[in-house]
Design a protein around this nucleic acid. Structure first.
Ligand SMILES: [Mn+2]
Ligand SMILES: [Mn+2]
Ligand SMILES: [Zn+2]
Ligand SMILES: [Zn+2]
Lengths: 126, 126
DNA sequence: AAATTAACGCAACTCGGTTGCATCAAGAAG
DNA sequence: CTTCTTGATGCAACCGAGTTGCGTTAATTT
């Protein structure tokens, strides 16, 4: 079930993602917003925003959950599949606009794919 | 640091992977072997076997850690990069022999990639 | 056989994430 | 604007995967 009431906390989180240029880990969000809302609230709102097709989530290499804005998804059409890039030095994690063809596997039905690229970001390369 | 002594526990784990046809989650290994060794020992041996290039690990969609045998890796050459398939119904997780080209990203250095395909396995399709 | 030390068992811990429940506040109804 | 309904929140307790410290055990060297 998605968002029904536009509470103060929901608005705050939407604004944070509006201004973010990269993906955000839940851990960072909880820390950054711990004066404005409870960590349980952060988890629950992210959950609902994902159901709505407003956000999408993925796992980083370390097992932490990350969220980022969807481009053109709805609750029924959650098809914004794209790779992500995680910097192994500073941790910065971004959505890539790269198109990746999802390979098919014999005798199996592939519904979705998660491609995480790991390396060094622009700044950490210098 | 890798394996130095071939203890009973190390031999047991190597045998389990020798006979496995799919990847194994740490959680399952700990449960399956809890009469033969402590969970800490399972974690530590898997760690060392990965350092050796005997095993490789990856994260499932749920954030659990999975291990599987490497084919032709060593401690210095850990280059067995391949996609994995996880069944969203039964959880079975396998290494795929599919070749996947790792895309390059402008202004970034990509070291490695993790591609996890999610769908229905052979048995769960029926 | 004795010495060395890598590896193990155990208990306590860390931390990301969840749950139950009482309370609050968004928004519909009047 | 006030009242009512109930979705959303705060809080505390909990869960579970993974880690750490340390005393003991056993694989390997001498
Ligand atoms: Mn993304
Ligand atoms: Mn594999
Ligand atoms: Zn970086
Ligand atoms: Zn299956």
């Amino acid at each position: 079930m998605g968002i029904i009431r536009k509470t103060k906390s929901v608005k705050t989180l939407l604004e944070v993602f509006e201004q973010a240029d990269s993906a955000l880990s839940v851990v960072e969000l909880v820390e950054r917003l711990h004066r404005e809302m409870n960590k349980t609230t952060v988890y629950r709102i992210l959950d609902r925003l994902e159901d709505d097709g407003t956000l999408h989530s993925f796992m980083g290499r370390d097992g932490l959950k990350w969220y980022a804005k969807c481009r053109g998804c709805t609750a029924s059409q959650h098809t914004d599949a794209h790779p992500h890039f995680q910097c192994r030095d500073c941790g910065k994690t971004e959505c890539l606009t790269l198109d990746v063809s999802i390979p098919s596997v014999p005798n199996r039905k592939v519904d979705s794919a998660e491609l995480l690229l790991i390396g060094l970001c622009e700044e950490c390369l210098l």
